[in-house]
Design a protein around this nucleic acid. Sequence first.
DNA 1: TTAACCAAGTTGGTATACAATGATGGTATA
DNA 2: TATACCATCATTGTATACCAACTTGGTTAA
Lengths: 233, 233
Amino acid sequence: MEASSETNAYAALRAAILSLDLVPGEKLSERGLESMLEASRTPIRAALMRLENEGLTQRAGRGWQVTPIDLAEVRAVMEYREAVEVAAIALVIERAGDDELTALRSIIASSPGKENEETGLRDGGDFHVALSQLSRNKFFADAMSGALTRLSRTRWLEVRTAESRAHARTEHVEIIAAVQSRDAERAAALVLSHSRGTRDRLLNHLSEERRRLRARGYSIIESSETPSPLGTV
Amino acid sequence: MEASSETNAYAALRAAILSLDLVPGEKLSERGLESMLEASRTPIRAALMRLENEGLTQRAGRGWQVTPIDLAEVRAVMEYREAVEVAAIALVIERAGDDELTALRSIIASSPGKENEETGLRDGGDFHVALSQLSRNKFFADAMSGALTRLSRTRWLEVRTAESRAHARTEHVEIIAAVQSRDAERAAALVLSHSRGTRDRLLNHLSEERRRLRARGYSIIESSETPSPLGTV
DNA sequence: TTAACCAAGTTGGTATACAATGATGGTATA
DNA sequence: TATACCATCATTGTATACCAACTTGGTTAA
């Protein structure tokens, strides 16, 4: 891989944010990051702008901050992800080869082995990204990946038991099976219920634990809903 | 509005690309743009990176270029836009107020007045963006806006007659009417057929005119379809 | 004691110098 | 005449100096 200062700074910052080493809401300064990232402001600034596009950093007044976790945004992302995935699954059924589906299925089956490893970070996320890639449409795949990136910090705030992992895996297997039998209706229904189940579990947990998590220093907010765009048209 | 060098450079470059003053495929250099944009490399570089995220510029070897028009990408974007808009319309029916829909409808009705003006650049695009904003979900609105940005250069390559504009306006009015009567099924069907009609007309025209357009210096390519992601999982 | 003001420090925004890396064109030699 | 090699130029990548704007803290005066 290319190893430019900007790429390194970007990767290091991104990892620190997703792992919550840099806590949600934390203030960042370009100069202050120089020592941590061992690079000068130019590549750091570029990295911050890239992360801004992914929704992981944002401008706060003059400076920067790690994007706080916003319950309203989580809801909106889940809603969007649901629509994208339901539409993508129809394309997957049209276009994915049996070999590809078999390969994906075997990856799911082997995933329990790495439950506790660092590579398990994305959890089921890897499955959903891989699935959406089978749509052969870059925009569905990128949308899915971007949505899961925005959600991925919340995974650390959830309780992930062995049972819940097994449950998710079961649902993933069911989805693949429906795709393999080219049953579009069933596949869409399964994706929908899987997505909504994940959403409900996540949102319930987050709002219950919100107070405790804020005490840890995490900025967890509930932004006002998007106002009517009347007049901005 | 804020008037930083970067913002100015970004806006000027974007306008030049969307108007085809900078032709698809044209090579750009950060230094070469300094005189045109009256700014130094730092803000120009930032602007190029922002445009890269919108798909309007891309890195070409060492340097930059205006993103060529890619027929495969146009197909993929249209496919994506269709899914996004069909899903968004359901949310609009849930959430949009009667007053908002009335306002949007009156805007469509008045649009023929500015048919030939610069503000008419986005054509029906403004309608679709405004409509998706009524979903009250930033991600649907941004996805719609981004998709139309990627498509907007092709509008210059189409023949836009008074009849075709009137036809589009009629369909827009029908969509609003369906939303106003909260008929989700009909609204979705209308959006779908409108989107597919636009897609088919555009793609047919582009492939027919491709040779002639290339003679004008426009880089119009047909990238290979996304290969199987097997093994990259 | 309180409030207002001023100064110093910190911030991102910008311009620019320098380094590293390809590209390109010309020249020399076979 | 053709080909290979070398030098020069143009390119982005990076570091850094400077600037303007804002924040913050202390100090001074009422």
